[in-house]
Amino acid sequence: MTQIWEVFRQEEKGGYHTHCGNVHAPDREMAKQFAAVQHGRRKPTNSIWVVPKDEVGEIDGDDVSFGGTTDKGYRWTTAYNLQTRQAEEVEESDAEQQDAEQRRGEA
């Protein structure tokens, strides 16, 4: 019996497998082949995972308030205004957090 398999593609070695679509297939082997053809041909691909759709659990913004319901500014680097030079790796974390904070705000 054919079923739906969710497809996750990793672009390059060491990267993350991210969801890129799904395929119909009767079994895991066929799902891998279809996924390779449909999702691995044009975009850069190092590896593909296929997962039966029924095995995927989902939780969304209607079920839960992501990030909480109260101000948790104290969890962010931006809450600490030190006016001192920071180590390179702290700067990097700071930049990543500012980016995440901004995108959360836009979402």
């Binding site: 600490y80 990097e92 990543e96």
Partner: peptide, 20 residues
Amino acid sequence: AHAMDKVCFEEGFHVKHGED
């Protein structure tokens, strides 16, 4: 390496909080 991506993302808050 993937675990370190997430750890480093969060850890900046710890260090800056400590410095504060």
